[in-house]
């Protein structure tokens, strides 16, 4: 039973893998932010569209750090607490632009397919 649950979780995060990274990068393009702040924004953006387990954010951030597109630094939050802030690296900005272009292309292609399907 546990195995089944794991598999479900896996398939969902796999679907989100690419988009979650892209969303995080896009949010960070506006400026440095801590994990909680990103989670809040994500909740607003995605409300009603898809469900994000907030915990999934952290593996994604670690993955982006490993890729070198995001770096982190400990800073102080608005309410004066110690928090880990994430920001885009210079490579991260280029990466984001490239990925956005890719996304536009892919989603455009998907939309065309879907539109075509709809036409039938």
């Amino acid at each position: 039973m546990k195995t089944e649950r794991q598999e479900t979780k896996h398939s969902r995060s796999e679907v989100l893998l690419g988009t979650l990274d892209l969303l995080v990068l896009k949010m960070l393009a506006a400026g440095p932010m801590h994990g909680w702040g990103l989670a809040e924004q994500l909740e607003e953006i995605s409300a009603g569209v898809f469900c994000v387990n907030q915990g999934s954010l952290y593996p994604a951030l670690q993955r982006l750090k490993r890729k070198g597109v995001v770096r982190s630094e400990w800073g102080t939050s608005d309410n004066g607490r110690r928090a880990r802030y994430y920001e885009l690296t210079r490579g991260g900005r280029e990466y984001l632009l490239r990925e956005l272009a890719n996304w536009a292309k892919t989603s455009g292609a998907v939309n065309r397919v879907l539109a075509h399907d709809g036409g039938n």
Binding site: Y58, G68, R82, T89, G91
Partner: peptide
């Protein structure tokens, strides 16, 4: 980026506080 990635790996490897930083972040 390769260098940053490497630094990140090394930090995870040698950074004494990797686990405790993660704890603190999630607690926050």
């Amino acid at each position: 980026r390769v260098l940053i990635g490497l630094r990140e790996r090394l930090r995870a490897l040698f950074g004494r506080g990797f686990e405790s930083e993660l704890d603190e972040e999630l607690r926050f």
